[in-house]
């Protein structure tokens, strides 16, 4: 794409229609990083949200406020913190992860986890009010309760996942810092858009933006379809 993007007559539409390999690679990486972050954040965020929803401990209300506030974590700050952590001179420097897709997944996981955990907490707490006696009557233990609530709230939790995915896919501040926007290696849709903007090729930047929006819409449409199909089966 580096080559192609140099020419003024190349439009984003041409890149899409010709399935430009460099563009496809960028789209692939964007999806991989965002979805990877969402999966990792779900693995952390769902149980975390469930624990906060189901346990009572001193300072619980404060932790809910903090968790909700963390949904607005500034990506640049997270990017910088992860950068310093993963830098060769940082505590985790020996992992050699800076300027790799893995670093981008880590940064976005940190951004997405509070969103998923906070929304899961709310959903699970509401469902818990409804289920608590029934599960107690069925003698279901703590782990079984969490598993049951997560499963039965799955369609609402899907919305939490989509919110997380939206955040990850649209985010540029963190990934450009920890990924470095390396051509063909860590360049995502958003960092490519930032690059084209800085090159003054605003039409191409907008065109790439449209492609990104289209991808996000497709992902949401797929999720909606899954939800509808699932609800028909499980109510």
């Amino acid at each position: 794409m580096q080559e192609k993007l140099m020419h003024a007559d190349t439009s984003a539409l041409d890149l899409v229609l010709s399935a430009d390999p460099a563009l496809m690679e960028i789209v692939r990486l964007s999806l991989l990083v965002s979805l990877g972050a969402v999966v990792a954040a779900a693995v952390i965020g769902f149980p975390l949200g469930a624990v906060i929803a189901l346990t009572r401990y001193p300072g619980r209300e404060a932790s809910i406020v903090v968790l909700n506030a963390l949904m607005g974590l500034p990506p640049v700050v997270v990017g910088l913190a992860v950068y310093l952590l993963l830098s060769r001179s940082g505590p985790l420097g020996t992992w050699g992860l800076l300027f790799t897709p893995a670093a981008m997944v880590i940064a976005q996981t940190i951004l997405v986890t509070p969103i998923i955990a906070a929304l899961a907490r709310q959903t699970i707490e509401d469902l818990w009010t409804e289920y608590r006696e029934e599960l107690a009557a069925m003698n279901v233990g703590p782990i079984g309760r969490v598993a049951t609530l997560l499963w039965d709230a799955r369609f609402s939790l899907l919305t939490a996942l989509l919110a997380g995915f939206g955040r990850a896919a649209a985010e540029v501040g963190a990934v450009i810092i920890v990924g470095g926007n390396i051509d063909g290696f860590t360049r995502t849709m958003t960092t490519a858009i930032a690059l084209e903007t800085s090159k003054g090729d605003l039409p191409l930047a907008i065109g790439l933006g449209m492609v990104l929006i289209a991808i996000v819409i497709i992902v949401n449409a797929l999720a909606w379809g899954v939800r509808r199909a699932g609800e028909r089966l499980a109510g």
């Binding site: 990877g36 999966v39 790799t100 893995a102 997944v105 598993a147 049951t148």
Partner: peptide, 28 residues
């Protein structure tokens, strides 16, 4: 319930695999 836990394990394995796959170029 057993089925659900299996799903969860799959999810964790998947996440781990994804992370390894993504970082492979850095380690190699």
């Amino acid at each position: 319930m057993i089925k659900r836990e299996t799903n969860r394990r799959h999810l964790i394995a998947l996440a781990g695999a994804a992370l390894v796959a993504l970082s492979a170029p850095a380690f190699a």
